[in-house]
């Protein structure tokens, strides 16, 4: 698999089997779940009259989030929607790391591992600051 002959008709499958489908499904589910939470939160905000275009600044404390969701707090729904959206690419990278590790593709384990580390650094920076 040197890839040096551009004229050959068949290129070997370049990813671990099933990775493309798994990633495709993950992206769809992530968008759908986050879209539902954002839509419900937006409707709740409009119905309660707290929105023209009004909003809370910043992240809700994770404690009490479930209770806030149960109580129909629009900001809790909006926060979950945004959090799911931001988490989807992180899970996508973790999924790829696991797939490449399974087929022992060392260069791509290092590459995806590095990307995951950068994303977790972003999270850590945000939480600390």
């Amino acid at each position: 698999m040197t890839g040096s002959d551009a004229s050959r008709s068949v290129v070997p499958p370049p990813e671990p089997p099933g990775l493309r489908d798994a990633v495709g499904h993950l992206l769809r589910v992530g968008v759908l779940v986050s879209g539902i939470f954002l839509f419900v939160g937006f409707l709740l905000a409009v119905l309660r009259g707290t929105a023209g275009i009004a909003g809370s600044v910043g992240a809700l404390p994770l404690r009490g989030l479930v209770g806030a969701l149960g109580a129909g707090d629009p900001w809790a729904y909006l926060f979950v929607g945004v959090a799911v959206l931001a988490a989807t690419p992180v899970i996508r990278v973790a999924l790829a790391l696991e797939s490449f590790a399974r087929v022992r593709d060392r260069p791509y384990v290092l590459i995806t591992g590095f990307v995951l580390l950068v994303l977790l650094s972003s999270l850590a920076f945000g939480v600390v600051s």
Partner: peptide, 10 residues
């Protein structure tokens, strides 16, 4: 700002 992000994203 969640109240701005929600309508924009949707």
């Amino acid at each position: 700002v969640l109240g701005l992000v929600a309508p924009v994203v949707l």
